[in-house]
Design a protein around this nucleic acid. Structure first.
Length: 514
DNA sequence: TGGCAATAGA
DNA sequence: CGTAT
DNA sequence: GCCA
């Protein structure tokens, strides 16, 4: 459930962790599906060779690690001619080792490991499925062909997606001050100035050590040809001066002023309301009102909006994030046999408290229309049981996405989360923002990448990819001139995807740029 | 001095 | 164009 | 506001 710190590198533990992060179902439904397995189910696909560009076929698979208590999986593996080894890593995981992929030239790298749901789903589908959604070794440096292709991070890059941004910075104070300046620029409708401050803050956040002086910066940063300190995204004039002020006096006076101003506080409160952004917040805050309550009395905003905002402002503990996702998936499984899902967002980045819950769901063998129908049914079901209390938006897929570059459908809503199970006491209920996304299996890892964030990471990711005339969005990569999509069906992991895009592997915990 | 992520709905 | 992801 |  929880990802460990990147420093801890126990091989087998990593594998267990990975199987959890991108959960191929919980396992309570395994027995029922296993009951349906049989050799004949797989017969049409046996020896069928290369499916869906995954480069995996039956004859390349050598060994399978199978839970001791899964006779039917054992039987299935035997029918595929796999050498069976029993796993003591995790009873719920079967790890399948395959031969080298045909289009790889390196001899050295290890084989991808796949969780046992690959076997089960393949049986259910009656064909050998691509392993893309089932690979487990994303984060295993010793056993990952992806790992061997990793580019190193570049601390000096101007792009956040090349740098390490841990959850907690040793310079949190300074980062915070820069963010206040950023907020102020947004409020002043100076969006590009605001962007510049976001970038500067991200840059500082990537410093691994506390900086106390310019000398500390020298140790940390790069130089230009004149031997002067030059850090990308921190210009010579404005932001540089503010950082020096901070180093000298331990504060940035402008940030202090902004933070103490009443208008800034009202502005921020307004922005926390759904549907109110910089523009309306600015307009409302300059009507002379001094509090949200006043604006409610005037009828500019409703009390419900304010109350909801107060709920949504509260951080969501990790345990609650996973239990809410659990409720969603539990209901999802009643509508869809074996969904694959991942909890993304701040949760995946390791935050102890999230702002919302981002749940990504996909499935093999379903069309997008079917997935979209599934999402609509899921929404209805969650509403009927009183869990989903508000649908802020539900996007529908237009059926012919031929030239639309969109392979996903999203639901943005609010759920009533209660600490005590089944309670209807409103005092025990907190409202939480939930995003549910269904997507095409081929774009799953790209969707994971997109929905994990942070915002700056995504921006710089797309900006970088664009330099190769490629456009990247949440569901596909395509040539911005020819409009041709890049085939991602063979992408086996998020890590593999980053390597494919010529980007370094930055663990989710280190994408906290905002 | 132009560009700064990409995309959708209201 | 505003707000949202 | 910063970068190329």
């Amino acid at each position: 459930m929880k990802r460990r710190a990147p420093s801890d590198k126990s091989t087998t533990d990593e594998e267990c962790d990975d199987s959890d992060e991108i959960a191929q179902n919980q396992d309570q439904d395994d027995n029922s599906s296993q009951a349906t397995l049989s050799e004949s189910d797989l017969a049409p696909a046996e020896g069928g060779g290369d499916h869906s560009g995954s480069g995996i076929n039956n004859s390349t698979i050598k060994t399978a690690l199978i839970p001791l208590n899964s006779p039917s999986l054992n039987q299935l593996a035997t029918s595929l001619g796999l050498l069976i080894t029993h796993s003591d890593i995790d009873v719920n995981d079967v790890i399948v080792k395959s031969e080298c992929l045909p289009n790889k030239h390196k001899q050295q790298h290890a084989h991808p490991s796949v969780c046992h749901h690959w076997l089960r789903d393949s049986a259910a589908a009656g064909r050998i499925l691509p392993i893309a959604l089932y690979v487990l070794d994303d984060y295993n440096p010793n056993n990952s062909e992806d790992g061997s292709d990793d580019l190193p991070p570049n601390p000096q890059s101007k792009n956040a997606c090349f740098r390490i941004h841990p959850l907690n910075s040793p310079n949190e104070h300074l980062v915070h001050a820069l963010r206040i300046l950023k907020q102020d620029r947004v409020a002043r409708d100076e969006r590009w100035n605001a962007l510049a401050y976001s970038r500067a803050a991200a840059m500082v956040k990537s410093f691994p050590h506390r900086i106390r002086s310019k000398d500390d910066i020298r140790l940390q940063l790069s130089y230009d040809s004149n031997d002067t300190v030059h850090t990308k995204n921190i210009g010579e004039k404005k932001i540089r001066a503010k950082i020096e002020e901070y180093l000298n006096y331990g504060r940035i006076s402008e940030a202090e002023t902004i933070q103490n101003s009443a208008s800034h506080k009202l502005y921020n409160a307004l922005c926390s309301i759904q549907g109110i952004g910089p523009r309306r917040a600015y307009e409302l805050s300059r009507t002379g009102a001094s509090s949200l309550g006043e604006l409610v009395e005037r009828g500019s905003i409703t009390q419900e909006d304010v109350t909801l905002a107060q709920h949504l402002e509260l951080g969501i503990p990790r345990t609650e994030v996973s239990s809410i996702a659990g409720v969603v998936m539990e209901n999802a499984r009643t509508l869809l046999p074996h969904p694959t899902h991942a909890i993304c967002g701040g949760y995946r980045r390791g935050k102890s408290e999230s702002n919302d819950i981002d749940i990504l769901i996909t499935h093999h063998g379903y069309t997008l229309q079917q997935m979209n129908e599934f999402l609509a049914n899921l929404a209805r079901r969650l509403q009927d049981m009183g869990f989903l209390t508000k649908l802020m938006r539900q996007l529908s897929l237009s059926d012919g996405h031929s030239d639309k570059h969109d392979y996903q459908s999203t639901l943005l809503g609010v759920v009533a989360s209660s600490s005590k199970y089944g309670t209807t006491d409103s005092a025990q209920v907190t409202f939480r923002r939930v995003d549910i996304i269904v997507c095409h299996p081929h774009s799953f890892h790209l969707e994971v990448l997109a929905w994990t964030g942070s915002v700056m990471y995504e921006r710089d990711l797309r900006a970088f990819v664009k330099r190769r005339n490629l456009k990247l969005n949440a569901s596909c990569v395509y040539d911005e001139h020819t409009n041709n999509e890049v085939d991602l069906s063979g992408i086996r992991s998020e890590r593999h995807l980053l390597a494919f895009l010529h980007l370094p592997w930055i663990a989710p915990e280190n994408r906290n740029c905002d």
